[in-house]
Each structure stands twice: as C-alpha cells, then as structure tokens.
C-alpha cells in the first residue's frame, strides 16, 4: 500500500517539472515516436487486411464465401478452388500438436518451478527455451530426415492394430502425414507453452503455498490446489499462444505433411495446411484465379487466428469473472 501512495507524489513532481517546462520537449518527442510506431504497425496491418480482402473478391464472386470455404476440390489446372482440405488439415495438425504439447509443457513447467532445485531449474529452463530458437526449416528437415522415418514403424503398428477398428487411425501409413506434422509442431510449441506456464506458476503467491504445506499438504497438494487453479488463466493464455503458432507454422509442416489436397479421416494420411499450400504454390501460381485463391486461403487463416484469439479472450474473461466471484 505504501508503494501506491508514493506513486502520485512522484507523479506530481513530474507535473511540477512540466509546469516549469523542463521536460516538455523530451516528452513530446517520446510521445510522437511511440505514436508513430503505433500508427505504422496499425497501418501495415490495415493495409494488409484491406489488400488481401479486396484480392479475394474475384474468388468470392466465382464460388461464394461459403462455396469456397466448404469446397473440397483444389484443382488449379481446372480453376476450381475449395479451401476445406486446407482448413481441415490446419485444424487437425494444430489439435494433434496441442494434445501432445500441453501435457509435456505442463510437466516441464511444473518440474522447473516446483520440483527441481534452483541450480538445476535454471539450466533446464534455458535449454527448453533454446528449443524455441531452432529455425522452422531446421525442424522441418529434421522432421523429414529423422522423425518421419522414426515414426513410420510406430504408425504402421498403430494402424495395423487399433487402426483396424478406428477410422481415425486407419492405414495406409506413407510416413508424411497430419500426424507427423502435428508431432513436429508440438516440438515447436512446447518451449512457448512451457515458458509462459513457467512464469505463471512461478508467480503463485508464496503465502498460499505455505498455507497448504502448513495444513500438512504434500508438494502434489500444493500443485493441485494452489499452483494449477491460480495459474489456470495463464495456462490457457499459453495454450492459445501455442495454438496461434501452430496454425500458422509453414515450412516445417510443408516438409512433413505430404502435401495432398485431400480430406482423409486417418491422421496417418497425407494432407495439406493453409499456410503450407500458400508456401508451396504461390511462386508459380500462374493459372486463372490461382494467386487470388491462395490469398483467399490467407484470409481464411487470418480469420481462424482471430477466432482462436477471440475465443481465448472470452474464456479468459470468464475465468477471471469466476475467479473474482470465488474471491
């Protein structure tokens, strides 16, 4: 509380300075600089959205928004463009990635904040963070050269057993697939989710932890009753952040997904994502409406990203409200 009382007094000092005209130039310059930075960022986003959306008009005229989004055939040589195979691929790979990444990232974060002694926790955290610095194309090549051959026998075994009953896991297993892409993306988003979650867990109030311990609780009780409930919102934010990265991941996915514009029930089948089809085809998009259709896919990707972030925001607000009421 004392801290709060200090703030207005220092502010009034500044105001006195301002009245004397000593800091006006510096402040104005600072405000201008920050302001123009904001304007530039907003203008770039605005122009991008405007330009992309206007480019989609010929595609919308030809197929209609609904027709484009639900169209299942992508055949540039016939000037037929449907986005559904890519939307499906984007969502499926992201879901696979999140399902695999969240438990692992959560485990890492808990290990670092709750279990490991400080002299080990620091290096482990740094190593995990380093994973985030690996360039996408390196992940992709590693995926293509190492992970896909490694996963193939596993996929084959699963498809040969459980896949006989569950269409979701059905053979054939050519190697590059939704699943391989999901695994690669999982590796890429683990450090992001782990880093954010770690910060959230580390911010758990010490008093509450100690309260549980004082009541005779174990370390697990602390995690279950204090760390996770308090960190729920932050955890969700971390997942949304990871999801945002997952849906837009391009090069790594392109290398391991098999690039087939089809909708397959099995996660072991080759597919395509919104971002990877753009990367693949934009350079040589010379057919009728082809570049426009690819840009339209970009707009769809943008819409999905906005939707995910919006939903994330909503859930977060509800959590916060619920938390507020609980208090």
């Amino acid at each position: 509380m004392t801290v709060h009382r200090e703030t207005p007094s220092s502010e009034s000092l500044v105001r006195q300075d301002l009245r004397r005209g000593r800091r006006i130039t510096g402040d104005t310059l600072f405000r201008l600089a920050c302001g123009s930075a904001v304007v530039v960022a907003l203008a770039v986003i605005g122009l991008m959205v405007y330009d992309s959306v206007t480019t989609t008009f010929p595609v919308v005229r030809q197929f209609g928004i609904w027709g484009f989004v639900t169209g299942t055939r992508w055949a540039p040589s016939f000037a037929i463009y449907g986005a559904l195979p890519f939307i499906y691929g984007t969502i499926l790979t992201s879901v696979i990635a999140i399902v695999l990444a969240v438990p692992i990232a959560l485990g890492i974060a808990l290990m670092v904040t709750e279990v490991l002694p400080a002299r080990l926790a620091g290096p482990v955290a740094i190593l995990v963070d380093l994973l985030a610095a690996v360039p996408s194309v390196v992940w992709g090549l590693w995926g293509l050269l190492v992970l896909v051959p490694f996963l193939r026998p596993i996929e084959k075994a699963i498809a040969g057993s459980a896949g006989q009953v569950i269409p979701f896991l059905a053979p054939p297993t050519p190697g590059p697939s939704y699943f391989a892409a999901g695994v690669i993306v999982a590796f890429m988003i683990i450090p992001i989710i782990a880093a954010v979650t770690r910060e959230v867990f580390a911010a758990t109030p010490r008093l509450q932890r100690e309260a549980v311990l004082a009541l005779g609780g174990t370390r697990w009780d602390v995690i279950r009753d204090v760390v996770i409930p308090i960190g729920r919102t932050g955890l969700l934010a971390a997942v949304i952040l990871g999801l945002g990265r997952a849906i837009g991941e391009t090069i790594a996915v392109t290398l391991v997904i098999g690039n087939a514009p089809k909708i397959a029930a099995s996660i072991f089948a080759p597919g395509f994502t919104l971002a990877s089809v753009i990367a693949n085809e934009f350079n040589e998009a010379t057919e009728t409406l082809h570049p426009e259709a690819l840009i339209s896919l970009g707009v769809v990707l943008l819409a999905i990203a906005v939707l995910i972030n919006g939903v994330g925001l909503l859930i977060r607000r509800r959590f916060e409200l619920a938390a507020g009421r609980a208090r």
């Binding site: 055949a75 040589s77 098999g258 690039n259 087939a260 080759p270 395509f272 693949n280 057919e287």
Partner: peptide, 10 residues
C-alpha cells in the same frame, strides 16, 4: 501444377 490422382507431394 496438375491434379495428381495419386501419391505424396514434396
């Protein structure tokens, strides 16, 4: 680009 009836894209 053609509409391939079969195979993986790389």
């Amino acid at each position: 680009t053609v509409e391939w009836p079969t195979g993986l894209g790389a």
